[in-house]
């Protein structure tokens, strides 16, 4: 049994896009609540008590988003109170809470996504689409830090030679501009060597292939199948209109019926899938350790 982040990149990506996709294209409050709780829980389980700042930002964002809607939108039948000649309605408050839950939930999922999807996994996915695209990405990933490093090096050597003669902002900015311009020249000059090195190793002699490092195991198929099955069930419920929810002019939910409830349940299981997997992994390790 492997940890969720060790699954095949395509499996991981499919799961992430299923979870966030359903959350973004549907506004059913229970689904949003599940998405928000799932997002926070997933991030929390992966990172423990660290990343306090992220939680703070997202909490602030949630508050701002939830408050902004009733202040701007005055639709809805049930007026709670009047603020400076503007009616604040219950529907707008609930709508604000609902969309804030959706946005923050999805943002939490994306934070986890960017932690899990290392450049290598990203390349694996793009490589499946086009080996050329994957190469371009790989080269870009290499050159960005290289430029940063070179610009720091140039700035240091110019400083030690007295380029920034005065200790003031204008002189600093002028110095930076000159460094930027030579950095472009340096990049082009570098590019020639890199291009030679590519040509010398047969770049452009025909179709490229891609070395595949990740392979699909039975568990990958299982996880992928479960994800697709659950998201299918959930989409069926959404598509059949069982998870329709209207806020304006007044709250009105379609009767979910069996399919609707199954859809909500399927989404909950989908969101929890990696956590279930992780718990399984932990238990298994514990058992293995106790046997030693």
């Amino acid at each position: 049994m492997r940890s969720f982040s060790d699954y095949h990149p395509i499996v991981i990506a499919v799961w992430f896009f299923s979870v966030t996709g359903v959350a973004m294209f549907c506004n059913h409050p229970p689904l949003m609540a599940i998405a928000l709780c799932g997002g926070v829980l997933f991030f929390g389980v992966r990172n423990g008590l660290s990343h306090g700042r992220t939680h703070l930002y997202f909490g602030l964002l949630f508050t701002v988003l939830a408050l902004a809607n009733p202040l701007i939108s005055h639709n809805g039948k049930t007026v709670l109170f009047v603020l400076d000649h503007n009616p604040i309605t219950l529907e707008a408050v609930l709508y604000g809470l609902n969309s804030a839950a959706m946005i923050v939930g999805v943002l939490y999922f994306f934070r986890s996504f960017s932690q899990i999807m290392t450049s290598e996994k990203l390349l694996c996915i793009t490589g499946a689409l086009s080996p050329k695209l994957s190469l371009v990405l790989s080269m870009a990933l290499r050159s960005v830090p290289m430029f940063g490093k070179q610009s720091r090096k140039i700035a240091d050597s110019q400083k030690a030679m007295g380029l920034f003669s005065e200790d003031n902002i204008i002189d600093d900015i002028r110095g930076r501009m000159r460094i930027f311009s030579i950095l472009i020249t340096w990049a082009l000059e570098n590019g020639i060597v890199t291009a030679d090195s590519m040509a010398a190793r047969g770049y452009g002699t025909g179709r490229r292939t891609q070395m595949r490092r990740a392979s699909f195991f039975a568990a990958d198929w299982l996880f992928l199948g479960l994800t697709l099955g659950l998201v299918g069930l959930c989409s069926a419920a959404v598509g059949a209109g069982r998870l329709k929810f209207e806020f304006y002019p007044q709250l009105r939910a379609a009767s979910p019926g069996f399919l609707g409830i199954a859809g909500i349940f399927a989404y909950a299981v989908l969101v929890m899938l990696p956590l279930i997997n992780e718990t399984g992994v932990k238990l298994k390790w514990k058992r293995l350790m106790s046997e030693i």
Binding site: S119, E120, L123, P131, L135, S138, M139, L141, R142, M146, N190, V193, T194, D196, S197, M198, R201, G202, Y203, G204, T205, G206, R207, R208, T209, Q210, M211, R213
Partner: peptide, 21 residues
């Protein structure tokens, strides 16, 4: 520095072979 093309060691080793298809 300049004659290395890709960002990972394994990918650099595979680069030429990938070009040859």
């Amino acid at each position: 520095e300049q004659q290395i093309v890709t960002d990972k060691v394994w990918h650099e080793l595979a680069f030429g072979l990938e070009n040859l298809g």
